[in-house]
Computed example of a mutant assay.
Amino acid sequence: MSPKSRLYTLVKAWKNKPFQEVRDVCGEPWLGLSSEALEEYQSWSKRQAISNEPIFNTQGTKLTGSIFRPLLTAAEPQLLRLFMEGLDTITYWYRSGRFIPGILPIPEKSMASSNFVDALIDLTLNSRLPVGLVNLGIQINEGADYADLSKEGLLRMRRLGVLIHFLNFSGAASHMRWIEEMQPEGIHLELGQFRVNGLPAEINAQIKSFRSPIYASKITLLKDLENATNLGASHCYGGLMMSPVSRHQMLHISDSRIAKAIFSLHPHKNHNGDK
Rank of each mutant, 00 (worst) to 15 (best):
M1Q: 05
R6C: 06
V11G: 04
K12A: 10
K12H: 04
N16R: 06
K17H: 09
P18I: 00
F19K: 01
Q20Y: 05
P29Q: 03
L31N: 12
S34A: 09
E40H: 10
S43T: 15
K46S: 13
K46T: 13
A49D: 13
S51C: 05
E53S: 11
I55K: 12
N57M: 03
G60A: 06
T61W: 00
T61P: 02
S66N: 10
F68H: 12
T73R: 04
A74P: 07
A74I: 01
E76N: 07
E76D: 12
L80D: 05
R81C: 10
L82S: 08
L87I: 00
I90S: 08
I90W: 00
I90D: 08
T91C: 07
S96Y: 04
G97Y: 02
G97K: 04
F99T: 15
F99G: 02
I100N: 04
I100E: 03
I106S: 01
K109D: 14
A112L: 00
S113C: 09
S113Q: 09
D118S: 10
A119N: 02
A119G: 05
L120W: 00
L120Q: 04
I121A: 01
I121P: 00
D122L: 07
L123G: 07
T124S: 08
S127Q: 01
R128M: 11
L129H: 04
P130Y: 01
P130K: 02
V134H: 04
L136Q: 03
G137C: 04
G137K: 02
A144V: 08
Y146L: 11
K151W: 08
K151T: 15
G153P: 04
L155I: 13
M157W: 01
V162S: 06
V162K: 03
H165G: 11
N168K: 04
N168L: 02
S170K: 06
A173I: 12
E180V: 11
E181T: 12
E181V: 07
I187R: 03
H188D: 15
L189A: 08
L189P: 05
R195N: 10
N197W: 06
E202I: 09
E202F: 02
I203H: 09
N204P: 02
A205T: 13
S209E: 13
F210R: 08
R211M: 08
R211H: 10
P213W: 00
A216I: 10
S217E: 15
L222F: 11
L222V: 11
K223G: 08
D224T: 03
S234T: 14
C236T: 15
C236I: 15
L240K: 03
L240D: 08
M242I: 07
P244D: 14
S246P: 05
Q249Y: 01
Q249H: 09
Q249F: 01
H252R: 15
D255T: 10
D255P: 05
A259E: 08
K260M: 14
K260E: 15
A261T: 15
I262C: 08
I262M: 09
S264V: 09
H266L: 15
P267R: 05
H271D: 14
